[in-house]
Design a protein around this nucleic acid. Structure first.
Lengths: 354, 354
DNA sequence: ATCCCCAGGGTAACCGATTACATTGCACAT
DNA sequence: ATGTGCAATGTAATCGGTTACCCTGGGGAT
């Protein structure tokens, strides 16, 4: 189809080796010949076929990225930043979206193998890790997120959710909140467990309280947040603040709260995690925990380089800090109880059950 | 690196040709041999190297997609759907984001050439089309959006913005609006022009009015929408409704309006275009024009197939319908003027200047 | 017994680049 | 004149698959 190096060589009256040397800037070619060949390359719109280079060199110059949900702005921003990082390094991105389906994840990994990518950034640790083995077996470096497991060639970037959650709960306590609910991720996923535990730890450390009915599962999406809030508000008593496992969940929670006629933060405070752009747009703007995307992407990249340099050495664990961003969805805890269906009720939050 | 077909052949005690035949399901191999080889392939985690296949076959099985702004949820959704479509067809996606920079676009195209992609979906028609020529020269099919130009190997998908805008303006007229403003895209971009003209045509056709100060440029982002709304509200008189070139712009406009203390839609109606998920979340939920992503993606794909089948025949033009989605950001036109700084003013919209 | 056919499988060229090694030719030393 | 050294360029193997073509051997027809 498109012109090859041999075609260029023929036109220039030289061998393909010389053309290759010009392309790669080897010094062994006369300036005059170099110019002549470069001119022809220009005229023919020639660019070397990377599949051929790949075959010869063993490096595909492609990095894979597997995300669980492209419609989540957080992941989308990560894709964007990661792609920029790759382009700066003359690399390309092979993107895969699992949509939380493990079949789709397996196929994604298969595609990564097909292309012999130079590394895979795996942001979908929600899934079972088994299939990642086949990447490592093929000596493809992998960097996971919140996976809490490493191996030679497999590094892990851990978001310091524990610390972030501590900041958030401290903030809520300072606002007078004593009873706090939590809307998590999907049940059964590793990250969901970690986040819920971090929340509980922070609650306990600061001597605050929660209860089973206030700790519900979500799905890291708006819908799950809305349903989760509905479940919490359906309890006999409700907490004065609700923390969500991510911003989409928090936004869903906001919507439900509005629909039920609750004012935020006057009646109930809501906080999220991720700091997506949308969080500053919704009403009220969301208090949340921010992760630096650039730092995150850089860590992913570094983790892959680490694995690529020497596949035998053990994987690294890098910790990524979070920082609280206070906006208007959190405010002073209501003096009066937040009991549903009785907004005028003056009673403080009581412990009916237990 | 990873195992090759020859390694498999050696282990199975056959030639690489036989292994290849097994992989590709050729009937020339004994069932028994087939099973034995398949077993070894399984055990070794072998998958054929696509770069090698590409080299031999001339098909890279990669499609490129170039978008102007990945942080725009509309494009992100398009990426997601298009990727799904490709995966269904055992193809892969090479994603490029230009961030509205023409240098980045040129580099993106260069990367598409490097990989010898089988086709490029170009959603960034905001840019000059020149660099696309190099794709066509290399016989890579291209499908553009709202590009209003075709050529052999280059098809174009045109969003029927004219019709959509007519629906929207009709809706606003039925609500009693007579004076309508418009916040467009960045100045100098082709799509911006088209959208502005469609707006003006619709206005004129229905006998409504606008004026220079109410027709401002944006940047297809929230910031531009906010600034655009600020400019419109800074006029001596303001329209009763504002239409934005896309939803992000409309959302920015909403924010400014809120900050200025205007109630929506009581004081001023706002409408957008795209129907991104966020539009149903913001307050108030946005009236907008919806494009079916699936249909759009399918058209892009079909356009590329069309070019691939026979590169010499002229490109197709496909038209994509829009459909109005009425939500709460548009309402009855205020009886009383929407003059800024005088919310209690009972005067109807007056024409001070001109 | 001889020949033919064909199923099953091997051989080797090829795709487009890279690169170790070989070759050429010219300047300069002896 | 001959050899030496080096710069400029050519030759050919190679990467991992695919496939046109070739080879082999056993069964059936004559």
């Amino acid at each position: 189809m498109s012109v090859s190096i041999h075609e260029i060589a023929r036109l220039a009256g030289v061998s393909s080796a010389t053309v290759s040397r010009v392309i790669n800037g080897s010094s062994r070619v006369t300036p005059e010949t170099t110019r002549r060949i470069q001119r022809i390359i220009q005229d023919c719109n020639f660019v070397p076929n990377r599949s051929a280079v790949h075959l010869k060199h063993g490096k595909s110059q492609i990095y894979g990225m597997i995300v669980p949900d492209l419609t989540n702005p957080f992941f989308m921003e990560m894709v964007k930043i990661f792609e920029e990082l790759l382009v700066e390094n003359e690399l390309e991105l092979l993107l895969a979206n699992t949509d939380f389906h493990s079949t789709r994840m397996q196929r994604s990994i298969h595609r990564m193998l097909l292309r012999r990518v130079d590394g895979v950034a795996f942001l979908a640790s929600e899934h079972e890790a088994g299939p990642l083995e086949s990447l490592v077996k093929n000596r493809i470096p992998v960097v996971t997120t919140d996976h809490y497991r490493t191996a030679p060639g497999m590094s892990d970037i851990v978001v310091d959710f524990r610390n972030g959650m501590a900041q958030l709960i401290l903030h809520l306590r300072d606002l007078g909140h004593r009873t706090i609910g939590f809307i998590g991720g999907s049940d059964g996923l590793a990250t969901s467990r970690i986040r819920r535990e971090s929340f509980l730890d922070a609650i306990v450390k600061l001597g605050l309280s929660s209860r089973d009915g206030w700790i519900v599962a979500g799905d890291y999406r708006i819908g799950g947040g809305a349903a989760g809030m509905e479940a919490i508000l359906g309890q006999d008593e409700i907490p004065t603040a609700v923390v969500a496992a991510n911003d989409l969940t928090a936004i869903g929670a906001l919507r439900t709260a509005h629909q039920k006629g609750l004012r935020i933060p006057d009646d109930i405070s809501v906080a999220g995690c991720d700091d997506i752009e949308m969080s500053d747009i919704v009403y009220p703007p969301l208090t949340t925990l921010r992760i630096s995307r650039r730092q995150y992407a850089q860590m992913l990249f570094d983790g892959l380089q680490w694995g690529a340099e020497d596949f035998t050495r053990p994987g690294k664990v890098l910790s990524l800090p979070m920082k609280i961003v206070v906006r208007e969805s959190t405010g002073l805890a209501p003096r009066r109880g937040g009991r549903r269906n009785s907004p005028g009720n003056g009673a403080s939050v009581t412990r009916k059950s237990r």
